[in-house]
Computed example of a mutant assay.
Amino acid sequence: MLITPAFAQAGATGDTNSMLMSLLPFALIFVIMYFLILRPQQKKVRDHADLVKNIRRGDTVVTSGGLVGKVTKVVDDDQIEFEISDGVRVRQMRQMISGVRTKGEPAKGDAKDEASAS
């Protein structure tokens, strides 16, 4: 025999430990990428979905194309209609809204609350 059983057993445990240590940097890179890239992106998508969902009549919106206008009508769950100039109305998909500048009228439920508070 060229190798004694004691050396053969010691070599096997050393390989397992070194294999675990070689995979550790990959796991560390994945964790760092999750916290620096994936998690903030998910938060941004969630915030945009809330912003788009809460658009109502009277809000001033900015589209992804750069148009700025005042919402005149919420058509349905997918579209809004806004006025970019006197008498010029445009229909736009909600997902193409990039920002809301000013808030408009309160929602129907909010009007009751304000009347009872007065």
Rank of each mutant, 00 (worst) to 15 (best):
I3C: 03
I3D: 12
I3N: 07
T4A: 05
P5A: 02
A6M: 10
F7T: 09
F7S: 13
Q9C: 04
Q9N: 06
A10S: 12
G11N: 12
A12L: 14
T13R: 13
T13P: 02
T13A: 11
T13N: 09
G14T: 10
G14A: 11
T16W: 02
N17M: 09
M19E: 12
L20G: 10
L20S: 07
L20P: 00
M21F: 05
L23F: 09
L23R: 07
L24V: 11
L24C: 05
L24M: 14
P25N: 03
F26R: 04
F26Q: 11
A27P: 00
L28I: 15
I29L: 12
I29T: 10
V31I: 15
V31A: 15
I32C: 07
I32E: 08
I32P: 08
Y34H: 09
Y34G: 09
Y34K: 06
L36G: 05
L36C: 08
L38C: 07
L38G: 13
Q41Y: 14
Q41T: 14
Q42V: 08
K44S: 12
K44M: 10
R46I: 13
R46C: 04
D47I: 12
D47F: 11
H48L: 14
A49R: 15
L51W: 05
L51F: 08
L51G: 05
V52W: 01
K53I: 02
D59K: 13
D59G: 14
T60F: 14
V61G: 02
V61Y: 06
V62H: 00
V62K: 01
T63A: 08
S64F: 09
S64Y: 11
G65L: 11
G65Y: 07
G65M: 13
G66E: 06
G66S: 04
L67A: 14
L67M: 15
V68E: 05
V68G: 02
G69E: 00
G69K: 02
V71C: 04
V71E: 00
K73Q: 13
D76E: 05
D77P: 00
F82H: 09
F82Y: 14
E83D: 04
E83C: 04
S85I: 00
S85M: 03
D86A: 14
D86V: 06
G87L: 01
G87T: 01
V88Y: 09
V88G: 04
R89A: 07
R89W: 01
R89I: 01
R91Q: 12
R91F: 06
Q92G: 01
Q92K: 08
Q92T: 12
M93P: 03
R94C: 01
R94F: 02
R94W: 03
M96I: 04
M96C: 00
I97F: 03
S98T: 01
V100F: 06
T102P: 05
T102W: 06
K103L: 09
K103Q: 08
G104Y: 06
G104V: 05
P106Q: 05
G109D: 13
D110K: 13
D110I: 06
D110M: 06
A111R: 15
A111E: 14
A111K: 13
K112Q: 04
E114S: 07
E114V: 12
S116F: 10
A117P: 02
A117H: 08
A117C: 04
S118R: 15
